[in-house]
């Protein structure tokens, strides 16, 4: 009974992770500009691969493996926003425009000053 429960949790994690990865990929294609695409990639994408890693930890069922998987999960979750932030900053400084639907850009005055 216990192993079926564990298998169900693992399966749920696997399917959830794959689903989030798919959603991120769809978002990458559907969203209109670079900055909104970054939302999809940095949130849904990270959660997707993080959940899959957690699934490995749960499936293995021993503590060292789980701890390693957890460490990997936190590593991804902490690095994804940093890379997204760096990329958005670089793109905006260099002048890649926001999409036409954008309603405001309070950063443009700041960029012009430097």
């Amino acid at each position: 009974m216990m192993d079926i429960l564990l298998a169900a949790i693992t399966a749920l994690l696997i399917l959830g992770g794959a689903g989030f990865a798919l959603v991120a990929a769809i978002g990458l294609n559907r969203l209109p500009d670079l900055y909104t695409r970054m939302h999809a990639a940095s949130k849904a994408g990270t959660v997707g691969s993080g959940l899959l890693l957690l699934a490995v930890g749960v499936h293995a069922g021993d503590l060292p493996t789980f701890a390693r998987a957890l460490a990997g999960f936190f590593f991804f979750v902490l690095t994804a926003p940093i890379s997204a932030h760096l990329l958005a900053m670089a793109a905006h400084k260099v002048g890649y425009p926001l999409c036409a639907e954008s309603v405001r850009d309070e950063m443009k005055d700041y960029d012009k000053r430097i």
Partner: peptide
């Protein structure tokens, strides 16, 4: 994190995306 991933998922999967993106200070 969980909430935001879910919100992005809902937004992306909705048939008509209603976006008002922008940068605020």
């Amino acid at each position: 994190l969980a909430l935001s991933a879910w919100k992005v998922a809902v937004l992306v999967m909705s048939p008509r995306m209603d976006l008002k993106p922008g940068i605020f200070a």
